[in-house]
Write a protein that binds this DNA or RNA. Sequence first.
DNA 1: TTGTACGCGTTATCAA
DNA 2: TTGATAACGCGTACAA
Lengths: 346, 346
Amino acid sequence: MRKKRLRSERITAKDVANELGISAMTVSRALNNRPYVDEETRTRVQQVAKGLGYSPDHIARSLATRKTHTIGVVLPEIAHSFFPEAIRGIEEVTYQRGYHLILTHSAEDAEREKDAIRTLESKRVDGILISTAQTMEDYRIYKQLVKSGVQLVFFDRCVWGIGASCVSIDDEESAKQITEHLIGHGYTKIAHLSGPQRVSIGKARLRGYRRAIEGNGLLYREDFVIESGFHERGGYEAMNRLLDLSPSRRPQAVVAINDPSAFGAMKAIAERGLRIPQDVAIVGFSDDIRSELMPTPLTTVRQPAYELGKRAAQQLLAQIEGKSKPLTQSVVKADLVIRRSCGCNS
Amino acid sequence: MRKKRLRSERITAKDVANELGISAMTVSRALNNRPYVDEETRTRVQQVAKGLGYSPDHIARSLATRKTHTIGVVLPEIAHSFFPEAIRGIEEVTYQRGYHLILTHSAEDAEREKDAIRTLESKRVDGILISTAQTMEDYRIYKQLVKSGVQLVFFDRCVWGIGASCVSIDDEESAKQITEHLIGHGYTKIAHLSGPQRVSIGKARLRGYRRAIEGNGLLYREDFVIESGFHERGGYEAMNRLLDLSPSRRPQAVVAINDPSAFGAMKAIAERGLRIPQDVAIVGFSDDIRSELMPTPLTTVRQPAYELGKRAAQQLLAQIEGKSKPLTQSVVKADLVIRRSCGCNS
DNA sequence: TTGTACGCGTTATCAA
DNA sequence: TTGATAACGCGTACAA
């Protein structure tokens, strides 16, 4: 009498078992296609399970098996074009392999990122993909994670030296390439609007720029490297500082840390009545969707976000399933997209 | 001897309890800030828990409480600007209220959507937010979901008549508004590049267009409504069919189902050597990031995706926590963004 | 204020 | 080939 609650009760394996007069264990074996089940029994179980509308409880299963078939993703931002594409790549791989995705968002905030990581740990995800927040400086939480046995793969924005894998664009090489592309077209006075030096891509792109300059017999000048950050505003301000130099000291070309920063710089250049690329050439990094639609289309580096997401997910699943060492560094090659802003195709 | 496994064992509430010589129950009470715990005990428990690196197992907790504090999100696509913004809105609300997000992606495929829904149900999410795939025609799965007690809120692309809430843009009203904006500027021959009529927004925008036409004493012509679908390609082809009409029968203005469709149409117009808006005016729908950067910037309807996501999440949480009836219809107002392509600001 | 017994739904293990 | 029993780690309901 007491047991017969409303029909909103969920159907369990036991219900299916009772219906057939067998044990829950056999139901479990039958439905999970395990051996040691009579084929006729299996068929009947499957039919009854379907008839009753049974759906296995993943929560209970996870508690018993200590596997959730779920991976956590921690992103510093969601809305702009790079990360959505990366998510698509991640999702493609995980869906196909039967894993699910818990998405968290740090909003570039270190505390929120730690919070997200702790939550994912509590949710017992099988592994975590992280692209770190810019403000993240305390790496202890990553080390704890690795120590506690959660598989961890960084992507795009990596943290080194803590024994975790990383999948990233070859930022240094790409920055070197695009800078050399300018050098190859005769520019000798080339400035760099740099990213924050705490962030790995900021450092890597600066190194690439510097290697291109010094490797081609040009002079590396500290006053030609101005930190602009990742946004349009910073690019605008940094470019104005360069343009405040006397015309003879000004750069002929600029390598921006990314496309938004380049957009800001282009605005500053236009406001002074200067022409792109005749007076100042400029190149970006990331192939923002707007780059091709600028008054002067922007030469840039295309970052294969989708590919990056796929690779990161593949690496993580390989680690989870014990098929890969947890310390692989994978680099995805980026391509130059030559447009008019660099004055290289005339 | 047997019990002492490797140190990769997870710390449980019992470990913390043993360390202090108390029961696991007291640990649970202390850590969850429940009453009936001596304040000194509570403090000591918290210290030891932290010291041991204890993190509560949400899987076990969920099994015991029948609550996962997790909501599932089903999206037809991930990469383009609308959904990432919506996710951001959803995430903002859920994060703040202590809920987590499982993200799934149907890739506009009905089978994959059903799969996602079944998975989320097995994962015992507390509720689901869905934006349906274009190919989804079998609504039984939604009805089952509602019946089995999972809270359900549709957003942006809704399914009616199955007793679930919906949060959407007021598509009909917005389409009417933008069409009337053209009428108000003297256009009388206005065509519509329509969306698929299976999808609710396709139908709603057509109704809005039609109401504007008929409500202002103009003639509604079937041959001025051409299905273009949601993509650039379809817009291009549909527009070409309109331009194949003899010049005297051609429309003077076009209301496209969305911005990508409008981009395709603009390409078709330009290829024939016609000018926008002088020869053919055009308006879009969705405020794609590229719209403002077109050779002739596109007049469009801005869809507040972030706001929509927030509202949908709020509605879902209200239902989960029993504070709202599971059948609310909420409409988010969209704004016109007037640019040059409609020839309305000269 | 604290502890004990049990259940949540599944699977692992070992016995039948 | 099948079943009984005991986990998995927590919270609920009650007893102490």
